[in-house]
Design a protein around this nucleic acid. Structure first.
Length: 347
DNA sequence: AAGACGGGGAG
DNA sequence: CTCCCAGTCTT
């Protein structure tokens, strides 16, 4: 196939003088990209369980929430267990929040589990236990932003939406704008630009396909350009794959509040499972164990709970800091204080 | 526009 | 040890 572009996408050609950030894409190029991505997807997509026929909209929604900022491979087993336990919104709405947080396991950002249960409550109570189909309605639910709303509307209901996750943004930016990576977050212009690239036919396959392509071929770190069926028209590749000027600032982990919060949550989960009671850990024991580290106090706890509390101490013996984080966790709904105990929330 | 928010695994 | 993952929500 001979590709004759009417004008090349890139900074060097901008006859109209309009923004080159998101250049107009010549129709024949766009058609070839769409056909190629869709064919590639139908041929080589991963066999993810939530892509199976008859997967409920709710199950798809759950998969999307779990996949936020989380590699799909790590989501799969958690998703299976979750859907087995709570197949419908009403099931999740009725579950004890402590169980929900425990089932969330170590997927990260546990507030997502809270928001998901809240969404389930709204769907069960106000929406006849049915997931809404439009992005507008979906975005009103807690924990669902523009990406997840578009994804659920497309993948669960076949509506024509613009799915714009980190993969899609990277693929489109490379192919058509010649840059290595997208900005921190998509703006109005980028969203409108991406929307114009969605085909009328097979838009679901396009949405899922570009995402999958970004996850498997046009990856952030080491893209497999040799295997890319679009390498000849990819603007970024043709420019010699220039590195973006500014690298994203890397987030710290060791020593951060996030790490310590996670360790405290671990202790509460351990207490929940160990049967130190659904009432959690005595706050004075927790505090004393952290500050004074009296082994005798740990003896009053189950072994796994004691280990988790000891881990908190390893990270910090700063009682003020720990008290502040506990207070934050309570405010966030991730923990509760009852009768001098700290525990996972029981509602 | 910038930060906060988890945790893990690949390079 | 750095990077980055099917983002969302709050300053």
């Amino acid at each position: 196939m001979s590709i004759q572009m009417t004008h090349r996408a890139g900074p060097e050609s901008n006859p109209t003088g309009s923004s080159t950030t998101f250049p107009e894409v010549a129709e024949p190029v766009l058609r070839r990209v769409q056909d190629t991505i869709i064919a590639w997807f139908e041929d080589t997509a991963r066999d993810l369980p939530w892509r199976h026929p008859n997967t409920s909209a709710w199950a798809i929604l759950v998969s999307e929430i779990m996949s936020q900022q989380t590699p799909v491979a790590r989501v799969e087993p958690r998703w299976r267990a979750w859907m087995d336990k709570w197949p419908t919104p009403a099931d999740l709405a009725a579950a004890p929040t402590a169980d929900v947080l425990h089932a969330w396991d170590r997927l990260g950002y546990p507030r997502r589990a809270l928001r998901l249960q809240e969404a389930a409550e709204v769907i069960a109570a106000d929406l006849d236990n049915r997931v809404p189909e439009t992005t507008e309605e979906l975005e009103r639910l807690p924990g669902i932003g523009s990406y997840t709303a578009a994804a659920v509307s497309s993948f669960a209901f076949g509506r024509k939406t613009t799915v714009l996750d980190t993969n899609v943004r990277r693929v489109l930016i490379r192919l058509f704008a010649g840059r290595e990576r997208p900005t921190t977050s998509p703006g109005r212009k980028e969203t409108a630009w991406a929307a114009a690239l969605v085909p009328e036919d097979k838009h679901v396959e396009w949405n899922a396909g570009v995402m999958e392509f970004g996850a498997l071929v046009c990856t952030a770190r080491n893209p497999d350009c040799q295997a890319c069926p679009l390498q000849d028209i990819c603007t970024w590749n043709r420019l010699g794959r220039p590195a973006s000027a500014t690298k994203p600032k890397t987030q710290k982990w060791a020593g951060t509040d996030r790490q310590l919060r996670g360790a405290i949550m671990d202790a509460l989960k351990a207490a929940h499972v160990a049967g130190d009671g659904r009432h959690g850990v005595r706050l004075d024991v927790f505090t004393a164990a952290v500050t004074d580290f009296d082994p005798a106090l740990l003896d009053s706890l189950a072994e796994s709970t004691a280990a988790a509390v000891a881990r908190v101490r390893e990270l910090s013996a700063d009682q003020d800091r720990i008290n502040r984080l506990i207070s934050d966790l309570v405010d966030d709904g991730l923990a509760q204080q009852v009768d001098g105990r700290l525990a996972l929330p029981n509602s």
